[in-house]
Design a protein around this nucleic acid. Sequence first.
DNA 1: TGGAATACTAAACACTGTTCATTAAGTTTG
DNA 2: CAAACTTAATGAACAGTGTTTAGTATTCCA
Lengths: 202, 202
Amino acid sequence: MGITERKERERQEKRELILREATQMFLQEGYEKTSLRSLADRIEYSAATIYLYFKDKNELFFAIHEQAFDYFFAKLSIAAPIANPWDRLQKMGDLYIEFAHQNPEFYDLMFIMSQPMVALAEDCDWDCGFRTFNFLKSTIQECIEQGYMKKMDLDIAAVSITSFMHGVVSLVIRKRLKMYPPEQHRALMSGSVEQMMSLMRA
Amino acid sequence: MGITERKERERQEKRELILREATQMFLQEGYEKTSLRSLADRIEYSAATIYLYFKDKNELFFAIHEQAFDYFFAKLSIAAPIANPWDRLQKMGDLYIEFAHQNPEFYDLMFIMSQPMVALAEDCDWDCGFRTFNFLKSTIQECIEQGYMKKMDLDIAAVSITSFMHGVVSLVIRKRLKMYPPEQHRALMSGSVEQMMSLMRA
DNA sequence: TGGAATACTAAACACTGTTCATTAAGTTTG
DNA sequence: CAAACTTAATGAACAGTGTTTAGTATTCCA
């Protein structure tokens, strides 16, 4: 029964083609210009065809957002081999800022836009988000256990650090740091991160 | 020459009527359902009329966002009479969280959505944002000067605190804190804020 | 070879923000 | 007072959006 398998494979491949082109379009042209019709033009199918592979636009955006998370996780993983958890945490901070700076559209989709989370049903889980969060959490735990970081509740610490990093980055991405000229933003970001790290250091 | 004055006043009043209804609609029905046509229905004018009082939808959203900032600033000002700057800062943190929790759509418009910032031209300034930021900044300055807060660069401190507060709140609003059940969010938020405050305390 | 399943699409639906020619009302002036 | 000018408001159109559906080819299997 190789035929149904081939069909399934071809179906999967077409889904991935659409996803790949959508992702490229999203990065190249930005969110605003990524409409289902323009995507349809690009892949040379009709707009209705996209609905055979994705339930709606939110689900397509969710799929792109998962791709972005894979890329982000791969980037963060550069820090994984660093034995010292404090140095690792520090490196993760740098990589976080770098990722957001180099892929603002991805960052937006992953952490700011509503669309992908609408695709996710009320109850069910957000695997790619959880994985990243747990990676951070385990590093923080090591930092505390090995006495690099002040003793504090693990969840509070993880939420605090996530919040802080997301805060800096998203204020810049959504243009709410207008009180400082753009050329100062990078310095303010890394300055704040450094400050925050030194406050948490045991 | 009372006629041109009356005309100007009537014009201003109509602008405010539109703005008031738009704001109510935005709060009641949410962003998604606030279209220029549905707003036009509500105020019993045609959609084209709105364009006689606002350049485009972004400018209307910017005006609503300014109203939201006024309300926010009034709320934050509850803390203004508190003499001790550290207590005042603490109170401002509580009020910030409370505002975001009670008016998530306003918060979104003020600090997350792109629309209002698009209405603001590249160069020109964001008065309502600046005012709020400066209020925070002066309180931080007092905290440092009076030895309540660890010695640190004022701008770094202001950006750090803003980032952190915005981070917690916006993660919740945009549903990126799914690793914890909703009933735990408030506790995590105040827990993080407390933790952060205690780290900054001299 | 005929019937069922699949892949795909054109066209329509119900929206959106925005523009513009036209109408109606009010104001000023000869 | 009537004519000319100014302003306010609108209906209709434009160009776009996400989404649904009826219908058409094409492929597969009994």
